Amino acid sequence: MTTALYPGSFDPMTRGHLDVLVQALNVASKIVVAIGIHPGKAPMFTFDERAEMITASLHEVLPESSGAVSVVAFDKLVVDAARDNDASILIRGLRDGTDLDYEMQMSGMNRQMAPDIQTVFLPAGTASRPITATLVRQIAAMGGDVSAFVPAAVLKALNDRLKR
């Protein structure tokens, strides 16, 4: 049984995140979605809210796979989080060349620290390439329609948070 760690902030979960998560299920039999917790950052959603949105979003598209995915928090190096969760693979989504440049640097550093953990890059689908959680938060906060960018559970959470 191969376990992969898919780290990120997921604040909130986007269709791009979901696309990569679904692809990751073809790479490993178990996926641990690791939500990074940074004391200096104030996320829009709590860890529990993000975990619930991730679980609900996956259930929306692949209800039979929800048992293969768990959600954890981490506040350390991603390679340490991978080891803590018995993951031998790191999943990283790529939208464009800018992501690739950054992720290649991170992959190289992670490889130096943990040569036993392999990074796997998964390309975002064409429809989800321009989507970022930051842009989703900004558009939603300004009253824009983000329904094309987020799963239904996330849209509901955003609307509830922003009182629409």
Rank of each mutant, 00 (worst) to 15 (best):
T98C: 02
A82G: 12
D116C: 15
T98H: 03
I117W: 05
N85C: 04
T98I: 09
L94R: 13
I89E: 03
D84W: 11
P115T: 05
A73N: 03
D99M: 07
G93N: 06
M113L: 15
V79R: 07
A81K: 11
A73V: 02
M113A: 14
N85R: 02
V69H: 00
A114M: 10
G108P: 06
V72G: 03
A81F: 06
V78T: 10
M104Q: 15
N110H: 03
P115N: 04
A81E: 02
E103M: 06
S107W: 03
V71W: 03
N110I: 15
E103L: 04
G108H: 08
V72D: 00
S88R: 02
G67D: 14
P115E: 05
V71A: 03
L94Q: 14
Y102H: 12
D99G: 07
T98G: 04
Q105E: 14
A73Y: 01
G97K: 07
I91L: 13
L77S: 09
Q112R: 13
D80M: 12
M106V: 14
G93Q: 13
A73R: 01
Q112A: 15
T98F: 05
V69A: 02
I89N: 02
D75M: 11
M104W: 01
G93F: 03
R83F: 14
D75G: 15
D86Y: 02
A114P: 10
P115L: 09
